[in-house]
Design a protein around this nucleic acid. Structure first.
Lengths: 205, 205
DNA sequence: TCAGAACGTTACCGACCGGTCACACCCATG
DNA sequence: CATGGGTGTGACCGGTCGGTAACGTTCTGA
């Protein structure tokens, strides 16, 4: 995540030139897609929110679909950073990593009531040929495998099944947030995760 | 394009008491919303698929939103019928009901790769003020409570937590179907459910 | 027989969409 | 100064959308 090129320009945070247009567009697009849905927001509004215009947007990204993929890829990078953080803060202690993973996701549930941008995009774009679907599928797969690795390192019986279960719980919680609000969902997710982890820790299921 | 004027009026080989337009519209709308998304299909196409026209559609339903709510309500009725079936086929045997519930949902995962229409609608309509949201929330709540009743009758330790966990697993599986395909998702859901039910049956979690 | 409801057909409206074009602008480098 | 790339501006295109108006048709039932 190297962002600063240290230009000798004015570092005024309010100045639109502080951040290059491309990043502003991706950032604004992610924001508006999240708020209104992919089909619910137009490229004009995205460009305006990024303090630029439609022409520049189309010069950076050939189409709205391409812009969408770029925003999703950015989301995957941000979300994927958790594993590095886990390894950094709890190196070697996989059980602690698993516990922290749950808490991290609980925080996300409470702070991001819009659910998972990737999953939401997949739901909204029913056409499975859409290029965004590949981004989503690859991400979900990698997240599950990373989780399975942690589960295995934590000495769980049947780490694959535990990872599957926790993945489903998370996926379910992130959509429940959108149907039933974040209040109960995060609590239920946490309690379900703790019970599940305990069960897989105790028995030979 | 339009070779109309053909008097195919009474040439319908189906029953004389044909399905009334309203039901046809709701049925077609549910189908097309499922296939293309709510924002991905127009009322014209819905009317045509229902073998009627837009004017009739708007006379039966005042707006697209109203039509959407009607289709969602129909989905809730259909999906809610499972509880009657469960009680009919396994009266008194709550453990068997729970097992059958899992298998029923597994079948749905495999046969309906589009996920849950209600949840999908909630995801697509980010505006939580939309009338459809109320329909979705009420349905999800009732489903969870019904499941909790079965869990309690099955003698589970902590039936509330078990119901929450199974609900999250189902919700997660029905979105995973859309991100990773139905092959692995249904199997993972079943195995996770079985392990979870077993854990709640065996211990005092 | 005739009224009236239900349904079909066509055309239309205003709004918005994704995407393109031509052109002016700013600013760094030579 | 010249030049050329990155950027801003506004007009424009073809298409689709949700929704409505006006009128014609078919069926029913008293």
């Amino acid at each position: 995540m190297s962002s600063s090129k240290s230009p000798d320009k004015a570092a005024d945070p309010s100045s639109p030139t502080a951040i290059p247009p491309r990043e502003r567009i991706v950032s604004s697009a992610a924001d508006l897609f999240r708020k209104f849905g992919i089909r619910g927001i137009g490229v004009d509004a995205i460009a305006e929110a990024a303090q630029t215009n439609k022409m520049t947007l189309y010069r950076k990204f050939g189409s709205k679909d391409e812009l969408l993929c770029a925003t999703l890829r950015q989301v995957t990078q941000r979300a994927g950073a958790i594993w590095d953080e886990l390894e950094r803060d709890f190196a070697g202690d996989a059980a602690a990593q698993l516990k922290r993973w749950v808490e991290f996701q609980v925080d996300r549930l409470e702070q991001e009531p819009g659910g998972c941008d990737l999953a939401n995009a997949a739901v909204e774009l029913r056409d499975s040929d859409h290029p965004a679907h590949a981004v989503v599928q690859e991400f979900k797969n990698s997240q599950r495998n990373r989780l399975a690795a942690v589960c295995e390192a934590a000495g769980s019986s049947n780490p694959e099944l535990l990872a599957d279960t926790l993945s489903l719980l998370l996926e379910g919680a992130r959509v429940s947030v959108q149907t039933s609000g974040p209040e109960g969902s995060s609590r239920r997710f946490r309690e379900s995760c703790e019970a599940t982890i305990a069960a897989f820790h105790r028995s030979r299921v």
